[in-house]
């Protein structure tokens, strides 16, 4: 796997280790592709946020960059009308049930959603979808961090690190559809779960759902 390949992203020639996922190659070379659910350590990407679409020469439909291993001679374009439309819809859907109010948010200025909005010129107010405000109480039972589910975008990063990095198994997804959320066993407070307050999940949260107390 240590073979190097040369690929083209937006007319830039880039060398990268063969088999590395396109998303990470692009990000390492300062080419931004929106993403929320991807984690570099994760072998099998969940590809659930649907934000990292790109156009690849020879493939008719846009492809998710986080699942595409790079191969010699790959030609990629990060923007096209099709890609923009897909990303816009995915972003709007995410924003409709994400509690806004960036000024009061602990992730203000470090938030992935803000970054995507800035990079792609996407608005926080959607004309097509009605906002759906989640009404979840904030879990403040832990000393080091708080968990505000109404800001969660269900990317699944925290669940993955909880299971595979921290190996605790305190949080997971439960329920289905619009009610889906990250919970502990029995939806109890984090303080009543096996959580060890290692803080790994807080570090990977792309938005202000999990945040350290100052």
């Amino acid at each position: 796997m240590s073979d190097k390949v040369t690929i083209t992203i937006d007319d830039c020639k880039i060398t990268a280790p063969e088999g590395e996922k396109l998303l990470w190659v692009a990000l390492d070379n300062d080419i931004y592709i929106p993403n929320l659910c991807a984690l570099k350590e994760k072998d099998r990407p969940s590809a659930s946020c649907r934000l990292c679409f790109v156009e690849v020469k020879g493939i008719s439909d846009p492809v998710t960059a986080c699942t595409l291993p790079v191969t010699e001679g790959l030609v990629v374009k990060t923007r096209s009308p099709e890609v923009d439309r897909l990303v816009k819809t995915a972003f709007e859907l995410l924003i409709t049930d994400h509690r806004l109010g960036c000024k009061k948010c602990p992730a203000n200025n470090s938030c992935e959603l803000q970054k995507i909005s800035k990079e792609r010129g996407l608005k926080y107010k959607s004309k097509r979808f009605k906002p759906f405000e989640k009404d979840e109480p904030i879990d403040e039972s832990m000393e080091q961090f708080i968990f505000d589910r109404s800001r969660c975008v269900l990317c699944g990063r925290c669940v993955w690190v909880d299971h595979h990095v921290a190996e605790v198994g305190a949080i997971g997804f439960s329920l289905r559809g619009i009610k889906r959320k990250v919970t502990t066993f029995g939806d109890y407070d984090l303080a009543d779960s096996p959580c060890t307050e290692c803080g790994e999940c807080v570090k990977v949260c792309p938005v202000g759902a999990l945040s350290f107390n100052e």
Binding site: G169, I171, G172, F173, S174, R176, T183, T184, F185, G186
Partner: peptide, 26 residues
């Protein structure tokens, strides 16, 4: 019931929250 889910999770050796997620999904 809660003790049943906990017991199953313990026997299969996976976090109880995973079984809980499944039980609330279907």
């Amino acid at each position: 019931p809660e003790p049943a889910i906990e017991k199953i999770a313990k026997t299969i050796d996976i976090p109880a929250v995973d079984v809980f997620g499944l039980a609330t999904f279907y």
